[in-house]
C-alpha cells in the first residue's frame, strides 16, 4: 500500500516523519498495516488473542526507537485498534505513536484506540503521542484513545500527549498502576478551537512503596470550544505525587478542571495546583511594546504556554 501526499503530510504532523524511518516501525493506514518492520531488538507482530499490534522491546536493549503512527485518510472510516506495547526488563525505549485524520465527503472519521503499555522491571519508556486532524468542515474527526499502563518495580515512563489542531471531538482515558520505586510523568497539551470538544480523564494508582507520579496539563480553549480535564492521583503506599493543571480560556470557551488527590495510606504525599485564567493584559501590552501586534502577541503567548 502506498502513502499519498496527504498521508505523508499527516505523518509529518503526528510523528515528524518524511519517509519510512529506519528501525522498528508499523504504519497503520486506513485500518491496515501499510509498512511493518521488526529489528533484532524490537519485535513488531500481531497478537493471536486480540488481533492487534504488539511491539516488544527486548530486555536490556538501550536507546531503541519504534514508530507506530496511525493515518486515516479514507473518508468515513471508523477504525478501532487494540495495541500492546511492552518494554522488556532493563530496556530503554522510545515509542512514537500518534494519530492523524484527513476527513471528507460529509462523513465522520473516527479512531478508537486501546493501548496497553507495560514497562517491565527497571525499564524506561518515553512515549510520544500527537493527535492531528484536517479536512472538510462538515466531516468531523473523532479520536478516542484509552491507555492502560503498568509500571513495574523500578521502571519509569514519561508520556507526552499533544493535541494542537483539527480534532473535533476527543475522549481520552489514561489509567496507570505504579509498583515500588516506579515512576510516571504525564504531560498533556491541548488546544481546542471552533466548536471542538475535548475530555481527558487520567487516574494514577501509586501502589508500591517509594513510587512517584507527576501529571502536568496545559490547555488553551478558544472560540466556543469545550475542555474537561479530570485527573486523580491515588496514593496507596508510601509515595509522592503532584498534579498540575493550568489553562488559558479565551472568547466564549468553556473549561472545567477537576483535580483529585486521594491518599489511602498515611505515608502518601500528594499535592495539586489548578488554575484557569485569561491571558494577562500586562503580558500582551509588554509584547506589543516591543513592536508586535496584539494578535501576534496572543499567538506567541499561547505557543509558549503549550510548548
Amino acid at each position: 500500500m502506498n502513502l499519498t501526499k496527504i498521508d505523508w503530510n499527516i505523518m509529518d504532523k503526528v510523528a515528524d516523519l518524511h519517509n519510512v524511518p529506519t528501525g522498528a516501525v508499523n504504519i497503520r493506514l486506513n485500518g491496515q498495516a501499510a509498512i511493518r518492520r521488526s529489528t533484532p531488538n524490537v519485535c513488531v507482530t500481531n497478537s493471536p488473542e486480540t488481533g492487534g499490534l504488539v511491539v516488544e522491546f527486548r530486555a536490556g536493549v538501550q536507546g531503541e526507537i519504534a514508530h507506530v503512527p496511525v493515518v486515516l485518510s479514507e473518508p468515513g472510516l471508523k477504525d478501532a485498534v487494540h495495541n500492546t506495547f511492552i518494554v522488556g526488563e532493563g530496556a530503554d525505549a522510545t515509542l512514537i505513536a500518534g494519530c492523524g485524520i484527513h476527513s471528507g465527503c460529509h462523513q465522520e472519521s473516527r479512531h478508537d484506540g486501546l493501548h496497553e503499555i507495560i514497562v517491565k522491571k527497571g525499564g524506561r519508556l518515553r512515549y510520544i503521542e500527537k493527535h492531528y486532524g484536517e479536512g472538510e468542515e462538515d466531516s468531523p474527526r473523532v479520536l478516542n484513545p484509552t491507555a492502560k499502563i503498568i509500571i513495574e518495580e523500578n521502571a519509569h515512563a514519561e508520556l507526552e500527549m499533544v493535541q494542537i489542531e483539527g480534532v473535533n471531538s476527543t475522549k481520552r482515558v489514561t489509567e496507570a498502576q505504579i509498583a515500588a520505586k516506579g515512576s510516571i510523568k504525564i504531560t498533556e497539551r491541548l488546544l481546542t478551537t471552533g466548536k471542538q470538544e475535548a475530555f481527558s480523564e487520567i487516574s494514577i494508582f501509586m501502589q508500591g512503596s517509594d513510587s512517584n507520579a507527576q501529571i502536568l496539563s496545559r490547555g488553551v480553549a478558544q472560540d466556543q470550544s469545550r475542555q474537561i480535564f479530570q485527573a486523580a492521583l491515588v496514593g496507596q503506599d508510601e509515595c509522592n505525587g503532584h498534579l498540575e493543571c493550568d489553562a488559558i480560556i479565551m472568547d466564549q470557551a468553556y473549561i472545567q478542571s477537576i483535580p483529585e488527590i486521594r491518599a489511602e495510606d498515611a505515608r502518601a504525599v500528594l499535592t495539586h495546583e489548578a488554575a484557569i485564567g485569561k491571558i494577562a493584559g500586562e503580558q500582551l501590552l509588554k509584547l506589543m511594546s516591543l513592536g508586535i501586534s496584539e494578535s501576534e502577541a496572543i499567538e506567541m503567548i499561547i505557543q509558549g504556554f503549550l510548548r
Partner: peptide
C-alpha cells in the same frame, strides 16, 4: 511581567 513558556531568547 513574567511569562510561562517563553524563554529569554524568545523575548
Amino acid at each position: 511581567p513574567r511569562f510561562k513558556g517563553l524563554t529569554v531568547e524568545d523575548i
